[in-house]
Write a protein that binds this DNA or RNA. Structure first.
Lengths: 209, 209, 209, 209
DNA sequence: TATGAATGAGCTTTCATTCAT
DNA sequence: AATGAATGAAAGCTCATTCAT
């Protein structure tokens, strides 16, 4: 679930200088505006002009001042979102057993997604809209943590044999799909969604009784 | 899985006239070039200029000549792909039981997706890139056929109780995700992928023994 | 009121060959369609595509086939209209006195304009829209016949002294303005309009009693 | 003679912010270039490219930066011209009698037109070239002020009975026609033209002696 | 004689980015 | 730290015209 945080700086802070409070606030404001615009109109509509308008900035130049490029800004959006997700998940997955860890993972991510629909939608649009250069290591779905849980479960005998990459991908996509599903079916309860997912993947992964 | 085929024509064939052989060939060529460009560079990179270049056309005007607008072209891309998918699936799903039908569905779609990775990737990018106007009925994932199978299985007692919308969405996303997974893991065998999915969703859906 | 009839021919009839009946019919049809399109949407909207559509032609190429260029077509529109106006006026102006001739002129032109609003409007739009190359001799308003009448009237002592070019221009513009006036005030009766004009210019031109 | 000034702004100044000195200068420069191009080549030739070239701008984008759209630019051209005309006329028409007011009107407008031939020609081309959306109230010729004078003159018994709409239209067109007349007859003296018009319309309107 | 296809230049507009202040 | 101005490339689309058939 991690993504490499964009380290490049705009021309306003090109060197290794530390960021001032004001600068950080501006950056956060711009990132938030970008998320809003993307969530509302898709990645294609996220021009600097639109983002500046939403943020109440008087010039698109200010965005360029704080971010090295458009893809740098988009990288910050994803980094910020994934960072928040990481913070949300921290500690939750140190569970008793792999099966419990998977449950905790699903519920934790679903929780977060439900509470951050716009951010998640924006991030997914950025990935698919080409807003990020797919540097190796930056994967659409970071399979590793889930895959590790699955492998641990198999080693412990809790999970049956299956291809962990495939199962991890299925789980990831199930979890990532929530914002889109909520768009067409706004009445779905995220908690119930998590319950369904947990039941589904418990049945799908546990070793035969 | 159906999408409404765009009927609008470019200035070259505005009325209700039948399409000539040459026109059909050009349209197919342009659609193919669009798929190539999108699959390689994402929807954002799919400008008329890029498509014309790829197709070896002398002018972007020729695309406008054959398609009423960019979204018309994109609609053709999806229509063509979904049409081929429909043809591929025809007959396969008239299975003995809901469980068998679900199996047939998963294997059929996976088969198709594996053989049409670029088209499928292009179509998904178009949907997410905003290249298509979401007319009601054109859903990102058309849940209905899968959902119906699931409901039938529940009625027949073959499937346990679960939220059919959620389960259908999970199955759809699992199946749609193959092209993306293949990009990062090109060694995955689509047949094996289908097997994994079938096992997974059989376990996840069948009624308790 | 004369305009030099465009003599250039389309590639379909480039030499000095006589026009066939079919060719003449097609040309007339295209000219009529051009008038319709211009009258409805202004000169700016008069693309070959729009004209072909209106004429029910299957290709804009047919227009190029029959007319050497767009300005050739526009020249034909004006030539045809002015030709019809000439035919309408023929004989009417051989009046007893210059004063009667002026009356006859005003009434004749007003009559014609009222019966050919669309053609007149189209012609004026072409002139102002730049659809015709202002070759010397092609004047927006052909002053000569009116000016001659005015000069004759002055020589005969019927008209007072005034600048004949100015008076001719005023009369011409009064007469040409009818189609535009009718657009904003459709209730104006052309006959009454002619009456007003005749009274106005009789008062304005006659020698002091 | 008034036209509603377009208030929309280009992307450079979208909100309600006040205009800077630089911006005003640029806008004026672009408007002037547009007038030049239109006066020289007609409305049809007035592309952004041509205007930018004339103004010495490096990019057509700069025009879009300062004006919301092409019709916005054209609206400014007319607004600026009509504004100047309004300023020129202010005070002149508060004359002793309707007859004197009409005289003052004709001389005032003729004066202005003579000194602003290119602007006037450009404005008339814009109206006829479709460069402005005919919002109700924006008439090709604003008849009202002249018509009012005429009606006042009739009420006061100074003017004979005639259709005021028709007479107003004739006067307007006579006055508006000066730039065109000057193009074919550059030797005409605007003052003499005004004299001729005043005599003409005095004779045409005054009550029988 | 007419058609459909194709061309290449042109259009207005939007874009991310740069820069002087 | 921020602004307004400017840039030049690129976008989708329309145009009159040409041409093989």
């Amino acid at each position: 679930m991690q993504a490499n945080a964009g380290k490049a700086r705009g021309s306003g802070n090109t060197g290794g200088r530390a960021r001032t409070f004001t600068e950080s606030a501006r950056r956060a404001q711009i990132v938030a505006a970008a998320i809003d615009v993307i969530a509302d109109g898709g990645y294609a509509s996220a021009s600097f002009a639109a983002i500046a308008r939403r943020a109440g900035l008087s010039s698109t130049g200010l965005i360029s001042y704080h971010f090295a490029s458009k893809s740098d800004l988009m990288a910050q959006v994803t980094a910020e979102t994934y960072g928040a997700l990481g913070a949300h998940m921290a500690g939750r997955m140190a569970a008793a057993s792999p099966a419990r860890a998977l449950e905790a993972y699903i519920r934790g991510v679903t929780d977060f997604v439900a509470g951050h629909r716009r951010e998640m939608k924006a991030v997914l649009e950025i990935f698919l809209g080409g807003g990020i250069s797919y540097t190796p290591g930056t994967e659409l779905v970071a399979l590793s943590p889930v895959e590790e849980m699955l492998r641990a479960g198999q080693s412990a005998g809790e999970f049956r044999e299956f291809d962990t990459r495939v199962m991890a991908a299925v789980i990831q996509r199930a979890v990532d799909g929530l914002p889109f599903l909520l768009e067409t079916h706004p009445d779905i309860d995220p908690d119930a969604y998590a319950d369904e997912l947990i039941t589904t993947f418990t049945l799908a992964t546990r070793s035969a009784p």
